[in-house]
């Protein structure tokens, strides 16, 4: 579904990714964990085409998207839940969702919207509220809902648990599990290693711009190195 081959990314002269290769297959939930500054967000941004990869190739459903514009990539069956939620705070919940389905017909928007409200009944209650006035958890739900509006076949998620209360995090991860049941391929980037690996089919560990480890989620959870570095011993 999504394949990265030896991807390098530069910010000016500084190389942030030193040749990352990974693969996410159809229907899988793959987690990428790593410390601050390891390049997790850079990796996701590179997949989205901003910044472009300076070297290496990226394929989405067999089609190369390495040199594509962000706008084109994001319209071809992929959606992202960006880091820090980034909902449109001045727009209402309903409008935020409509923005998510910008390139779909009204009919499709209506259907996806009903589906999102089904997943997150809380959003339905807040339909006409401005997104900026909602709690962090509700905004995260909205960010996920907005990404789902375009009916993506693959969903990228950048630290959906960032800055949320433990109870809300649990809820968010339940939703992620539910989305996987629906058959959406998910590539999850997390610092919350325990939950992310627990849910994942497979996991990658990113360290200073390189893939250090790659295994199934369960194996990584039991890996002593991972336990020492990311799971608090």
């Amino acid at each position: 579904m999504l394949v990265l081959e030896d991807v390098h990314t530069h910010y000016g002269k500084i190389e942030a990714l030193h040749g990352v290769s990974l693969e996410v297959s159809r229907g899988e939930l793959v987690s990428l964990i790593g410390a601050n500054g390891a390049g997790k967000t850079t990796l996701l941004m590179t997949v989205c085409g901003s910044p472009r990869a300076s070297n290496g190739r990226i394929f989405l459903e067999g089609r190369e998207i390495t040199g594509d514009t962000t706008a084109n990539i994001m319209r071809s069956g992929m959606a992202i839940v960006p880091e820090g939620r980034r909902v449109f705070s001045g727009l209402t919940v309903e409008e935020n969702l409509a923005m998510g389905g910008f390139f779909n017909s009204k009919e499709e928007i209506r259907k996806s919207q009903a589906h999102v409200y089904e997943l997150f009944p809380r959003l339905k209650e807040r339909e006409h509220q401005r997104a900026g006035t909602m709690s962090g958890g509700e905004q995260q739900m909205l960010a996920i809902g907005r990404a789902l509006m375009s009916k993506p076949r693959i969903l990228l998620m950048d630290e959906p648990s960032l800055g949320l209360a433990p109870l809300v995090i649990k809820q968010i991860f339940e939703i992620i599990g539910q989305l996987r049941e629906e058959g959406i391929t998910i590539f999850l980037v997390e610092q919350n290693a325990h939950q992310a690996l627990n849910l994942a089919d497979r996991g990658y560990v990113l360290e200073t711009g390189r893939i250090r480890l790659h295994d199934t989620g369960k194996n990584l959870l039991n890996n002593p190195e991972v336990q020492a570095a990311y799971l608090g011993g």
Binding site: N72, R86, S89
Partner: peptide
Amino acid sequence: MPVGRAWEALREDEIAARSLGLSRTA
């Protein structure tokens, strides 16, 4: 119209707007 909302979305958060496939240029 959608274009009006796209303007507002871009004002609110450019990165998020682009992540939804909106073309910043257009």
